[in-house]
């Protein structure tokens, strides 16, 4: 039998074969509840994983488009070196804009640490030049070399040291999301295995009768596997639906909300949670089949 008709047969079922195993109320409810709860969590783990990657990419892109030059020089040479830097930048491909921060801009930057009314002119604060890059960016190594020649007191900060930990953190968060999904799948498998094993143990007499009259292990297993697969599918479908609604109801992305308001799905990502119910059904199928065949092999 090919896989497609086999899958169809599993869903369609065999009315007579289904009747040979009596209904199992408790384990049925447990399986549906566990699948629903795990699917709900899986939706959030997936949303977290996707949102982390997306937000990190946004932050990375924003930082990658800007850089800063810090000019520290002895009194009297600062303005000349700032002017030299501006000239170098104006001749550098990939630099869209270069702006020397005014005293008010620098005061505003330092205010959170030093308080208002900072006497900048009495402090050895370096001058800052904000660079906006073109989408292609500039040659960092070449710019550094030219600055070293034209303005020895200028130091280029291309934000690499900020971006690297951010990217590492984002990657780690994405990994946590994927590990969470794997743990959710494993937990679902464990719960369904326990439920199926309980049902098999409760039906020991039924299994004995079926073996006595010539039923193959696969026939007996199929009756259990079909039930638990469909329960896993139904529970996960419900949990996924509720999870998607919950994600949809979360506050929208805005600049002040930061990370939490970006948690969710964007565009075609909304189709990804729809994979959870069939995957949960596959987990239920494999877990029940393994439990059923292992239990049956222990019987004469």
């Amino acid at each position: 039998m090919s896989k497609l008709p086999a899958a169809f047969a599993l869903v369609a079922g065999d009315k007579q074969a289904d009747r040979v195993v009596p209904p199992t109320g408790f384990t049925a409810r447990l399986t549906i509840f566990a699948s629903a709860a795990m699917a709900f969590l899986a939706v959030f783990a997936l949303a977290l994983s996707l949102a982390t990657g997306r937000i990190a990419a946004q932050w990375d892109a924003a930082l990658a488009q800007s850089s800063t030059i810090r000019v520290s020089a002895p009194q009297g040479q600062v303005e000349a070196q700032v002017q030299a830097v501006i000239e170098v930048l104006s001749a550098t491909p990939g630099v869209a804009d270069a702006r020397v921060l005014s005293d008010d801009d620098q005061r505003a930057l330092l205010e959170p640490w030093f308080g208002p009314d900072l006497p900048l002119d009495t402090l050895p604060v370096p001058r800052l030049i904000a660079i906006t890059e073109t989408p292609d960016g500039y040659d960092t190594a070449g710019l550094r070399a030219r600055l070293a020649g034209e303005a020895p007191g200028a130091v280029l900060d291309d934000h690499t040291r900020w971006r690297e930990p951010l990217v590492r953190a984002a990657d780690r968060m994405r990994l946590f999301g994927l590990v969470s999904l794997a743990l959710i799948a494993a937990t679902t498998a464990a719960i369904i295995t326990l439920a199926a094993s309980a049902a098999l143990a409760a039906n020991a007499q039924v299994i004995g009768v079926l073996r006595l009259v010539g039923a193959r292990d696969t026939y007996i297993a199929r009756a259990f596997v079909r039930r638990y697969t469909l329960r896993g599918l139904a529970g996960a479908g419900l949990g996924t639906l509720v999870g998607m609604v919950a994600v949809w109801l979360m506050p929208g992305d805005d600049s002040t909300g930061g990370f939490l308001t970006g948690l969710g799905f964007a565009g075609p990502e909304w189709f990804l949670p729809l994979l959870i119910p069939p995957l949960a059904a596959a987990v239920a199928f494999l877990a029940t089949r393994r439990a059923a065949l292992a239990t049956l092999r222990e019987r004469p």
Binding site: R211, G214, R216, D217, L296
Partner: peptide
């Protein structure tokens, strides 16, 4: 085990 089942038939 399948052959045992078939025999029982």
């Amino acid at each position: 085990r399948d052959e045992v089942a078939m025999t029982r038939r």
